[in-house]
Design a protein around this nucleic acid. Structure first.
Lengths: 257, 257
DNA sequence: GCATGTGAATAGCTTCACAGCT
DNA sequence: AGCTGTGAAGCTATTCACATGC
């Protein structure tokens, strides 16, 4: 999800809807697995199952890329792998920098998952002088003072931020000034960036909170199931007080002025 | 994003749209920051800016929760913190288990971000006997043989999977059988779960690929900008070959049969 | 015959713009 | 006067269902 003032609202990316773009990597992963097993062709039904979507959606998605299937047969696996890779821009090499080599940053650096797919970690960067020079994932950590130089020399346009929340905006600003135009943010903060810069965020805590919401609903369903006509009895003692109109549950202590 | 056969398609969660639920944690974070600075009230405009959304969306979102604001004034910060927390189910304690204590798992365990917000790591679990007993983030790692016992004794309903891709489905199945109904998946695989179980996934590699797509488009724009009437000259030599109808770019080597 | 590709229908989300309340 | 709360409009995404072409 892009954040802040980001993500061109106007024209859709070369006609490919954002929702489709977000699924292309899923298809690509499923196709790569098939390719490794030397499966020559696959139907929309099979591939959709492997990618965890339904087949109509998959066919619609592919239709934005072009007519890459064969009616009555399905899709050629190798061909699709190539087309989707090209569409995603993975046929070229993307040097990236990671800023913030703490627990998470180090774990990400060690995670090989992206190194395989067109991405190459050009540098690991941290502000802590004690970290500088230490090898992480086989590379020496570099000091943030050299950020601009590193970005420039390596032609980096994608940055990963894994700093504490407090440092993220500042790091972001420096990345953007130095020429980075895509940022993956692991810090739990909203980043503000100028137009033309894309930000995506990954936040563990937010994901858990969303799960908790659904989990809570499941628990509540057990009781108030079946005939949902009679509203469940109010938990507290008194009747719904005047004023606030929330469905139920008031503040434990004091009410707002 | 929920995956596989998941996420009740029918009735919306107590009337709250999924897109709204996904933003509540953002609002909550912004509100918590205001609360810590003892700001008493906030307008939709201010709060929206802090959360990185626009104010109309925020007001619409809040309208699904109830009428918690005061016209002409704004929202009471403390009150909203409480209401959103309650809506998200964060006024109760959620014990979670983390399975797979490798680089990433350990980093997540050390990341305090969720411990604060109603979530409590009940156990760290790994399949590697060499890991068992080792302290990570102040807790001894436990063996996966005890998974069911741990889940049962702690009343765990939320699990985090940070294993290698190959082990994820198997771990997922065991979690579900043991009673877990919400899963946060960091392994790069599609998990299949029965109805009623929610899965959300976090995948670094996918996020980077989405960024690469947009990045590529930006690079292409520099050339074909301004008057987009005349189509840009075809990159290769020959005219668009018959047969495949993709917008441009064919396979480097062999074509499919 | 069979699976793709796609218009048309539906559902869901966002934005607008203003009525309603403080 | 100012800001919320919300119908209505517009837009994006998903699903349906079938014509199309191998």
């Amino acid at each position: 999800m892009a954040t802040g003032r980001t993500h061109r609202p106007a024209t859709r990316s070369r006609g490919i809807p954002e929702a489709t773009v977000a699924r292309l990597p899923l298809y690509l992963r499923a196709l790569t697995a098939l390719s490794e097993r030397s499966v020559p062709t696959v139907s929309s039904e099979e591939l959709a199952a492997a990618a965890g979507v339904n087949s109509a959606k998959l066919r619609k998605d592919f239709s934005y890329l072009g007519s890459y299937g064969t009616r009555g047969v399905g899709y050629d696996v190798e061909y699709l792998v190539y087309q989707i890779s090209r569409e995603l821009g993975l046929t070229q090499d993307w040097p990236i920098v990671m800023v913030g080599i703490g627990n998470l940053g180090a774990a990400l650096a060690n995670y090989g998952g992206f190194a395989s797919r067109g991405f190459r970690v050009a540098a690991l960067i941290d502000a802590d002088p004690a970290m500088v020079g230490k090898p992480v994932a086989g590379m020496p950590v570099q000091h943030i003072d050299d950020l601009e130089k590193i970005i420039d020399e390596n032609g980096v346009s994608i940055g990963v931020i894994a700093t504490p929340a407090g440092a993220a905006q500042q790091v972001c600003d420096r990345l953007v000034t130095a020429g980075v135009t895509s940022i993956l943010n692991f810090a739990p903060t909203v980043l503000s960036v100028p137009d033309g810069v894309d930000v995506r965020k990954v936040d563990l805590s937010i994901e858990l909170q969303i799960l908790a919401f659904h989990e809570q609903r499941k628990a509540g369903e057990e009781a108030g199931a079946a005939e949902a006509v009679v509203p469940p009895v109010v938990r507290g003692a008194t009747a719904p007080a005047e004023g606030r109109k929330g469905p139920d549950g008031d503040m434990p202590a004091v009410m707002p002025a």
